Amino acid sequence: MSEEKKGIATVGGNPITLIGPELKVGDKAPDFTVNKDLMEEKSLSDYAGKIKLISVVPSLDTKVCEAQTRRFNEEATKFGDQVAVLTISVDLPFAQDRFCSVAGIDNLDTLSDYKTHAFGKNYGVLIKELQLDMRSIFIIDQENTIRYVQYVREMTEHPDYEAALNALRSLV
């Protein structure tokens, strides 16, 4: 049974339960399996040798999630091939593709945690009550060590973009 954390996050001010460990800077990044499309899976090893910025959003069909994804899509162009920018949500892969097509998102990978919630459980962001992943940001270096973690405590709030980008810049 996965660890449950209560009282550390909210949705609209209402407490929720997060499943999985609370990761910290210096921890080894847990592996995960997510879907690029309905058949193709991706894991941490698919981004070997790169710095990874993982932007986690509950659903791309909300304003804050859309803004977060647009911001990191724009920022991704500044880092070149040495950084992989990933957006992970539990949206179905074809919904992610539709969103990206309409929004012009083409500088990052959108990945779906819908099938097994492996990412959410391994990174401590799966919301038990909603089966969505909580808004968060992880920056992982080339050796898969976590160098930055931001668990956003209220789902409807934006992450601290500048803090995350500054942490990323320090690794590039």
Rank of each mutant, 00 (worst) to 15 (best):
S101T: 13
T62W: 05
N73Q: 06
Q96N: 14
R135G: 01
Y114P: 06
V125T: 15
R147E: 14
D97S: 15
T77K: 15
E143H: 11
L60R: 02
F138C: 01
M155A: 15
V125A: 02
K63F: 10
R147N: 15
T69L: 03
M134R: 00
T145Y: 13
E143D: 15
F94W: 08
S89C: 09
F119Q: 09
G120I: 08
K121L: 07
A103H: 10
R135I: 04
A67S: 13
Y151L: 12
G120P: 08
D61A: 05
D113T: 06
T156E: 15
E143F: 09
K128C: 08
A103C: 10
E129V: 12
P58N: 08
P58R: 09
T156N: 13
D91P: 07
V102G: 01
T156Y: 13
R147F: 05
G80K: 10
S136M: 03
S89T: 08
T87S: 14
Q68V: 02
Q68A: 04
F72G: 00
G104L: 09
Q150H: 13
K121E: 05
P93V: 13
L60S: 02
K63R: 06
Y114M: 07
V149D: 02
A95H: 05
Y151C: 11
V102F: 14
D113Q: 11
K128E: 11
L108H: 03
L108M: 13
L60W: 01
P58S: 12
K115C: 07
A67I: 04
H117V: 05
V152G: 03
I88P: 03
V83C: 00
P93Q: 02
N107A: 13
Q96P: 00
T116C: 02
